[in-house]
Design a protein around this nucleic acid. Structure first.
Length: 311
DNA sequence: ATCCCGACCT
DNA sequence: AGGTCGGGAT
């Protein structure tokens, strides 16, 4: 048998129960008190997970509360106009508008396919739009205490440092699952992500945060706190994403807008026949249309091409 | 500049 | 397997 990354010589401490107990005790003793940690409503959990996928938690709190005040249940959200949900997303600077669409669509799925009651297993949850392996396990865990071990960038960093688990998705899955105490996914997944969030950060605070795993941690022993590579994103300034965001933001202010008018409002160097002109803008709008965020209309009479937010 | 509790489509 | 998707905070 070859010594691939997945079956290389990592192993968890023998004293596994002690490792588990130490982390859970550490978490229960003190942790950040985010409001979604005090609910077991799967819809409220899902909203928090989707919002926090690429947005800092401290900025999510207010948005989460307002979102649930406006659309308290999946039935409310399913009945909403997509333009309003996307608008809310933009107003609260929650990033990727696609996620607003996913959430809206997922709410409709829960209503139409599950009669308003969320499915309770990770596999079923993954069928919901925008819900992948991570989010499915998070919702199953935090709402139903019925998830498998979550593996996100925090968990990877912790496992990589503490137990020398190689930077390999299979290995992370296996190690995480082996470590999680059976039937305790709610507290466990909260705890291990909290560890990655407040102690085993990019720059670790082992002693400051009172890390409960110091006695077992390979990195703490060796002083090597290298972390798995997280792919760095290209700069946002001048990116395509930036202009997508501007299109959404601009179309919110108008019922509909003609192509050139829109172009001039999203970039100062817009020139209909230039490098960033109609052709470029139509490509952008075409993608936004495929994403279900925008609709366009060609009017034969005056040969006018208009765009508006999709309802 | 870099960070931030992934998922989708091809 | 790789490319794409926002934007505020630090």
């Amino acid at each position: 048998m070859s010594d691939t990354a997945a079956d290389s010589a990592w192993r968890l401490p023998d004293d596994r129960e002690a490792v588990r107990a130490a982390l859970i005790e550490w978490y229960e003793d003190d942790h950040r008190d985010y409001p979604w940690r005090r609910t077991d409503d799967p819809y409220e959990i899902l909203v928090s997970e989707v919002m926090s996928q690429q947005t800092q938690l401290d900025r999510v709190v207010a948005a989460w509360e307002e979102f649930l005040e406006r659309w308290p249940t999946t039935a409310d959200l399913a009945a909403a106009d997509r333009a309003d949900v996307v608008g809310f997303w933009t107003d609260h600077s929650l990033g990727y508008n696609n996620r607003a669409k996913y959430l809206h669509e997922a709410a409709r799925q829960v209503e139409s396919e599950y009669g308003g009651d969320f499915p309770e297993t990770p596999d079923e949850l993954q069928e919901l739009m925008g819900v992948g392996p991570y989010t499915a396990n998070a919702v199953a865990s935090f709402a139903f205490n019925n998830g498998d071990a979550v593996v996100d960038t925090n968990v990877k960093r912790v496992l990589y440092r503490a137990f020398d688990v190689p930077d390999d998705d299979e290995a992370f899955e296996e190690a995480a699952q082996e470590l999680m105490p059976e039937g305790r996914s709610r507290v466990w997944n909260n705890a291990i992500m909290e560890l990655g969030g407040v102690a085993c950060e990019q720059t670790p605070k082992c002693d400051g945060a009172g890390c409960p795993w110091r006695e077992w941690c390979d990195a703490y022993a060796s002083g090597d706190f290298t972390a798995p590579d997280v792919p760095t994103q290209p700069s946002f300034e001048g990116s395509r994403r930036q202009f997508r965001g501007r299109v959404i933001g601009t179309l919110r202010e108008y019922d509909e807008l003609e192509l050139d008018a829109l172009g001039h409002r999203i970039r100062v160097d817009y020139a209909p026949d230039g490098e960033y002109g109609r052709e470029w803008l139509e490509g952008l709008l075409s993608d936004l249309e495929d994403d279900g965020l925008v609709e366009t209309d060609e009017r034969d009479e005056d040969d006018e091409f208009v765009a508006r937010l999709r309802r």
